[in-house]
Each structure stands twice: as C-alpha cells, then as structure tokens.
C-alpha cells in the first residue's frame, strides 16, 4: 500500500477531488437558480396577494390599478390565458398530430427531410417576428371578416396555434416513430389498410407520447408573451367574445411592468406567481407522463 501514498499520487487525488467538487457545484447551480427564482417571486408575490386579499385577487373581475382605491382582480387574465391556450390547442393540436403522422408514416424520405427542416425553422423564429406577422396579417384579416378591430382572443389563439406547432410535431413524431414496427405489421396482417393500421393501431399505441406533446404545447402557449401582446388587444376585461380584445397573464405583466410602482408592481409579480404555478403544474404532469411512458411488449 505504501507505493500508492507517493506524493504525486496524492496530488493527483486532491486534484481529482477538487475538480469533482467544482463540477458538482456547477451542477447544483441550476438547482440554486430554481430555488432563488421561487424564493424571490413568492416572497414578493404572496404578501401582495395577502394585501389585496386572495379572493379579491384570484376571483376579482376588475383590474383598475390606477383607481382610488385600486382593484387588482386577475380573473379576466386567467380566463384570457385559458381561452387563448384552449384555442391554440384546439387548432394546433389536431393539425400538429396529423402533420406528425404524415411525417412519420406517409412521407417519402426526401419530403420527410424537407418538412423536418421546415418545422425546425418554425421552432427557431423569434416571438417578435411571429407577433409582427400576426399584427399585419392575422389581425387585419379578422378585422375585415367580422367588422371589428381584429386584435382579439381569436387572433391570439391562431398566433399561438402556429407557434406551438413545431413543439407538438417534433415530440409527436418521435413518439410515433418509437412504436415498434410489429404493431403496424400485425395490423396489416389481419387485413387493415395502411391508414387503418396507422390511425387505429400505431397512433393509439403512441398516445402517452402524443399527450405529453400536447401538454408541452400548453406550457408554451400559456407562457408566450410578446407575440400575444401584439395581437390580443390587451383590454383587461372579462372576455365576452372570441373576436374582441382580451388580456392574458403574460401580457398583463409585460404591458404594465414599464410604469408600475408599489402595490401595482407587486400585483404584477403576483400575476407572475400565478402563472408560475400554472407552469409548474403543467411541467409536473409532463414529466410524470414522460417518465411513465409506455413499455412496448416484444420490441
């Protein structure tokens, strides 16, 4: 054993240990970041909600920060976020899943490569560029069609549907690709057509993956800020119609952050806390689904 205790060996050991500690602290950095983010948001947001009153804040329908006395009810924004996200999923979900089915099961390799590249491009376009596109194309189109200003929940829904397409498509494609070929072949063997095999056997077998794609899409949609701000009209009122303006939690924060002070500022942080809780729930269900997955027999 004496040979091992040579000074050089000890030096190497110390160096190894030191670097291990450095790597570990780097790894712990993201944990620390999450903790600090939670700490700062909650430490500032919760007292604000206490001051406003939980019921007034979460179920109040009036958001009038500059009234005397001010009202800080964010129900219109919660409803706005839910509507906009719901619209996005209702439009983007089916299109995304069907496009994923096309990519995975109906496209020859060349077209598959082309569409994959296109979807990759879509994922990379910045929110502001999408937002401007919505502002100059979608909003006027809705305005002309219904004789309104056009900046509306519907515009936000369409905008978000486009923006979550790449997320849904990419994840669904990998879920569908992961289903073993034997499922498909078995269906063909009992006389199903290619389409029946794909839609009735392969896609149902991939449902947990497809569902997690949708959930991730929900997360993207509910957290999107800039593009929505540019098309939704930003009226802090309860949404009464799809073609009228509304406001989401994210746009509430971004529109008023610039000039908010005191309780108003804290109320915006509190809006962020509510949004954050939504996101945590969504991410949590996503990781449960992902980890559960489906174990395919015989693969």
């Amino acid at each position: 054993m004496n040979a091992i205790r040579k000074p050089q060996v000890r030096r190497v050991r110390i160096k190894e240990l030191l670097m291990k500690i450095i790597f570990l602290s780097a790894a712990l950095f993201s944990t620390a970041a999450v903790l600090i983010i939670c700490l700062f948001l909650f430490a500032r947001g919760i007292p604000a909600i206490n001051e406003i009153g939980w019921l007034n804040f979460l179920t109040g329908t009036r958001w009038k920060p500059s009234d005397v006395p001010p009202s800080f009810g964010i129900l219109p924004m919660i409803v706005g976020s839910v509507y906009a996200t719901g619209l996005a999923i209702a439009m983007g979900g089916p299109v995304g899943i069907l496009a994923a089915i096309f990519i995975s099961k109906f496209s020859p390799p060349k077209i598959r490569r082309f569409i994959n590249a296109a979807v990759g491009l879509m994922a990379g376009i910045p929110s502001v560029v999408y937002g401007y596109f919505g502002m100059v194309v979608i909003v006027p189109a809705i305005g002309n069609a219904f004789g309104v200003s056009g900046a509306s929940l519907l515009a936000a829904g369409i905008m978000l549907a486009i923006m979550i397409l790449p997320t849904i498509i990419q994840l669904s494609v990998s879920a569908i690709d992961a289903v073993p070929a034997t499922y498909y072949e078995g269906a063909l063997a009992v006389g199903a057509t290619h389409e029946q095999s794909v839609f009735r056997v392969v896609v149902p077998a991939a449902r947990s993956g497809v569902l997690s794609a949708i959930i991730l899409g929900v997360g993207r949609a509910i957290g999107e800020t800039m593009a929505v701000t540019m098309v939704i009209g930003n009226q802090a009122v309860m949404p009464d119609s799809l073609i009228h303006g509304a406001r989401t939690m994210t746009t509430n924060i971004i529109t008023e952050m610039g000039y908010a002070v005191d309780l108003h500022y804290d109320a915006l942080i509190a809006t962020g806390v509510v949004l954050f809780v939504f996101i945590l729930i969504i991410n949590f269900s996503f990781s449960i689904l992902k980890n559960r997955g489906i174990k395919y027999d015989g693969s």
Binding site: I36, I37, F40, L41, G219, I222, G223, E224, T225, T250, I253, I254, M257, L268, I269, G272, L275, F276, I279, I282, N283, F286
Partner: peptide
C-alpha cells in the same frame, strides 16, 4: 427549461 421568458424577466 420550462419556465417562460416572462417569468425570467420578472425574476
């Protein structure tokens, strides 16, 4: 990775 940009902005 799942936290939206606006929450980062707030933080």
């Amino acid at each position: 990775a799942g936290i939206p940009s606006i929450v980062y902005g707030l933080f």
